[in-house]
Design a protein around this nucleic acid. Structure first.
Ligand code: ZN
Ligand code: ZN
Ligand code: ZN
Ligand code: ZN
Lengths: 169, 169
DNA sequence: TTTTTTATTGATATTCATTATCAATAAGAT
DNA sequence: ATCTTATTGATAATGAATATCAATAAAAAA
């Protein structure tokens, strides 16, 4: 089954046409097999993935898929606010479903400056939720900026690195 | 004046030896001209800079400086928590003096997902400050993580991109 | 449906930020 | 002053991301 064959049935698509149109069809963009597959991917997988990782997983189903298309599509989806692009200092970008987008499971990050370990937490304090609701409104008005999501990374040292290097204050 | 000449006088150094030792000398690291210059750079310049930018500015003063050393030093300073490494989707990393580090001028970012424009704001609401004090304590305990700083990026669409593309909800 | 137009794709060449290599050098110890 | 070795600068190598381009397929037109 070629991903590009017209009318190829993607039976795991959870994206209504409406949403795909919203992502791609705003200014004459076309809804294609690869695009559908990539949007779907992020609705089914939790967390953040590199372009290579997305490609590797999808290529199993769709041997025809090209890596360049994955890069292009991830870029487009970021530009349209569907995905957020993150960098954790690993030398390659990671993407995850944007905050607020249906199915998105929002979380924040703890990144170890020494070993690069990334921890995520999903269990927000109520204050945390309230804080972001409030501040996003304030900033939107103050800077004339339409906020679609945010990323909050805490930097520091994980348990292991803290122990291994006592002198790290 | 060669930056590597022993005892080269760096007359704009604001870094006490103590601090440099803290950055480099923990495990036998040496305090060198380039390292001193780079640490100084971030104490005098506000904002975030790429390795190239740091190199370009310092090379004026220190013709001998090598770009590889800049990369290596920025890495080391990130690992030791002196700098934070950011990525704004521009294809190259940016560094800025870590939150809390003496002389650091902390701020948060608004990043346009469409055109890549980066806005900064330094004017925190009291609530914002209170929030981070509280949550950093909570997270430190809960995840056994020594927090040295944080980065908060809001993603969305800037004034221009909001106008140009009305369909962007 | 068939035809037409053109955005998108996949393969691959290219770019360029970052890292690795290594002989020469300089920092810190003796 | 001498010795040891971490660091440096030059440059080669790596690899993520982008550009190129002929082939293909999506949407529009007929
Ligand atoms: Zn995440
Ligand atoms: Zn760690
Ligand atoms: Zn900044
Ligand atoms: Zn913009």
């Amino acid at each position: 089954m070629n991903i590009n064959k017209k009318n190829a049935r993607l039976n795991f698509s959870c994206c209504r046409e409406g949403r795909l149109r919203g992502c791609f069809n705003r200014s004459g963009g076309r809804i294609t097999g690869p695009r559908r597959a990539i949007v779907d991917f992020f609705h089914h997988e939790k967390g953040h993935f590199t372009a290579e990782e997305v490609f590797a997983k999808l290529a199993l189903r769709y041997p025809g898929l090209g890596i360049a298309t994955v890069y292009r599509t991830l870029s487009a989806l970021s530009s349209s606010g569907v995905l957020n692009r993150f960098d954790f200092g690993e030398g390659k970008a990671k993407y995850e479903l944007s905050d607020g987008h249906e199915g998105g499971s929002h979380h924040h990050h703890l990144v170890c400056s020494n070993c690069g370990k990334i921890m995520e937490y999903y269990d927000f304090m109520d204050e945390e939720r309230d804080f972001f609701n409030k501040i996003e409104k304030t900033l939107s008005n103050r800077h004339n900026f339409l906020i679609k999501g945010h990323s909050l990374h805490f930097y520091g040292f994980c348990e292991k690195c803290k122990k291994e290097n006592r002198e790290v204050k």
